[in-house]
Design a protein around this nucleic acid. Sequence first.
DNA 1: ATGAAAGCGCTAACAT
DNA 2: ATGTTAGCGCTTTCAT
Lengths: 341, 341
Amino acid sequence: MSKAIIDDVAARAGVSIKTVSRVVNREQNVRPQTREKVEAAIAELNYRPRHSARSLAANRSFMLGLIYGKPGAHYVLDIQEGVLEICRPHGYELVIHPGEFRDGDLVNEISELILDRRIDGVLLSPPISDHMEAIGLLNEAGIPLVRIAPTIDKDAYPFVETNDLEASFELASVLIGLGHRRIGFITGHPDHRAVGQRFEGYRKALKAHDITFLGELVALGDNLFHAGEEGARQLLSLGNPPTAIFAANDEMAGGVIKASLAMGLRIPQQLSVVGFDDAPISRQVWPSLSTIQQPIRDMAKTATSILLDQLRPGPSDPHPSMHPARLILRESIAKPAKPAA
Amino acid sequence: MSKAIIDDVAARAGVSIKTVSRVVNREQNVRPQTREKVEAAIAELNYRPRHSARSLAANRSFMLGLIYGKPGAHYVLDIQEGVLEICRPHGYELVIHPGEFRDGDLVNEISELILDRRIDGVLLSPPISDHMEAIGLLNEAGIPLVRIAPTIDKDAYPFVETNDLEASFELASVLIGLGHRRIGFITGHPDHRAVGQRFEGYRKALKAHDITFLGELVALGDNLFHAGEEGARQLLSLGNPPTAIFAANDEMAGGVIKASLAMGLRIPQQLSVVGFDDAPISRQVWPSLSTIQQPIRDMAKTATSILLDQLRPGPSDPHPSMHPARLILRESIAKPAKPAA
DNA sequence: ATGAAAGCGCTAACAT
DNA sequence: ATGTTAGCGCTTTCAT
């Protein structure tokens, strides 16, 4: 139980409170000898600066905000943990703000964060990282922000990203390499633009291998499991059904597998299925999904480091913005049953 | 952009800052007429009390802490959202603290929360809700806390709970009612004591129906998917394998299903499977799992309300601590293939 | 390199 | 019912 305040430390160390403050804040111009004395006093008294007092005096809250939509439970938790891992050791707390992309309240909530809590900086996770209105609001208020995996207007603000498009291109190419020519695709939620890039990667892969893109092989999804089931039923009931289905995320790919099994199809013998995210579900379905592993946690950590750098006076360290994704091949793919026409 | 402070409001309303403070804090002894004037001034100036100033003066942080282990992503998010739903409208922010049960750091982290951040109150989610050392620490510091689904020493602190044991009893009884006599059980992580009660429910159900409990039908698990796979393989390779498997949570039940399918078993014809939690995975496996739905979000909301009540002066409203769970019957169960001996 | 004094914006006693 | 006066514990000028 420490009730020590800065005056106690100053008295004990035989210096003024300003010197204690300098030591605590790692400022220049303190003689090593003095510093040691102060540090000893701090340790002896178990002194911890009162956070609210610092906030009031310095007009900073030492809190970071994390605003996110709902791209899946594991994604959100990974981001949260990545952020916490970096910000806690630097003395920053995290305030989490789930919000719906199309929710008018989001803007109000952000205003409150700014006005009431004087948040020092904000991390925007998909799909909110593309919410330009929210970003504009933060910008006007002069609050530093870092976007995680944005897809539009990337020049304006710092961000971290992964290569959805290229990874998706590769995964589609693997299917093509196995001999698949009719490859279905289930698209992601239209508000999640990063997921939209996966569709682009698929189209580019077709093009690169001179396979005609067919609209009938595309089903519209919304990132949820159920959409995968529906999409699979739609695509598999075509006169000439696809021999492989690429879902824009693992949750939908799981839906594809469930629906296919329910229809009596054997996977991968009769249908290859791939997803994207390396979500837990990709290992939990049978057969396991081939997918793409994204460095979500690392992105969150880098984003947080960038943000903290901006909060510190002085030049920022350089951080890589690109965190490449990785192909994970599992049991859900095989050569098509009948060779392509 | 509001830069208005309390003096501005006082001047505009023609009152003293103390009166403004009274209005803002909904204290007694303000004439309705005066209150209206002040409220008008607040609205006109878009005044928001500076949080750090209130904290410093009142020695409260207006922050709640949520400390949790990792009982599954959806569980954690449900709790977070339930807490936020209640605490935000009351002007409280949430600070999240993931922590491992057996991690010595947990105690340090809690100390920091208390000392540095002056957290006003704490919610403990499983399995940390049974971490008596952490609880003792909080208690000594005089920090109000509410435990979510504790299993031991329930008298000492306020808590919310669900009826794991009874629900588990019912679910096992359903299997018995279908004719199953050899029912395997995969236990939960030993640190998660709430999950342990599910085992008790299973045993009581056997006893109630005069079925001998057999140790060979029990596999030890740790709540993770993989443990379900292992447990299933262990139980199904017995000379006389069970006709049904009850896993202490859905994630493990999902593992049972995957392993069973991989072994060529048909579910539910050759094996019935049930889980617990009504986690997303219970709807995503094929066939869908029969399980127990817990009112996690509601528990979190009630727990938060109880905590906020404690923080308010005056008597607390009564809140029900019990939030009953609900049986969800889906496709994963059927009568055993061969009638019981 | 160190210190003295003046706030930061609010709440809490204590008037009135 | 309303106002006055001190702080809360720190950071910030500005001296020295």
